[in-house]
Amino acid sequence: MAEALVSVTINGRRHALWGEETEVLLTVLRDRLGLTGTKNGCEVGHCGACAVWVDGLPQLACLTLLGSVADRTVTTVEGLAGWWRTLNGNDAYHPLQTAFVDNGAVQCGFCTPGMLMAGAALVRDRPGATAEAVRESLAGHLCRCTGYEQIVRAVLDVAAREEDPA
């Protein structure tokens, strides 16, 4: 009775998953679907490395139950570029991915997927966001390598461009 068939769209593809409704999304993504881009840094919501989008909002996959995403859409770092292409009809990567590469926002890269998902939601919802807003939105994401500055720079870079497409 605890198991159920859960239908969920992940990175644009529909999956029918049979399993425990209370299994966390993190293990579903990593262990069952092989979507290992979403990282497990602490497994209990203390680090932010496993952030994904659920219906476009950043959530921690280690705290999200499979049953709670039934009939909803999940986007992981693997699907970020695809989401962007569908939206813009081009073949580019998400501008935040490019900005992370160009701004030196990536070091060991383990926090990067979570940072990208939180940052991409921010630049989508709040074009022209201030540095303060960027920092607030990344407050739940630990990074041990960069000192954060280059990540803020990358997000601001894109937030400014999104505000003024010219």
Binding site: G45, G48, P58, L60, L63, A139, G140
Partner: peptide
């Protein structure tokens, strides 16, 4: 309370 992601849930 906690962090933005956690406040979403």
């Amino acid at each position: 309370v906690a962090t933005p992601e956690i406040r979403t849930q």
